[in-house]
Amino acid sequence: MPKVTIDREKCKGCLLCVGVCPKKLISRDKSLNSKGHNPVKFQDKGECIGCALCAIICPDCCIEVYK
């Protein structure tokens, strides 16, 4: 099953990945990281198709995709 890992310390919470995920599996995390940003979180419902659109649009290179 494909999955996404997010480096929550590098994430600046721009939320661009949230808008491009076709399955809406990425959302804003309410807890802050050490830099004071609300990073994103990946909620695995077994629906990820491994399209990597989130990783392609991430400006901070904090997403890696496994398939």
Binding site: K3, G50, A52, I63, E64, V65, Y66, K67
Partner: peptide
């Protein structure tokens, strides 16, 4: 499981 999108070296 293969990494299909990784941080570039």
């Amino acid at each position: 499981m293969d990494k299909i999108y990784a941080h570039p070296k």
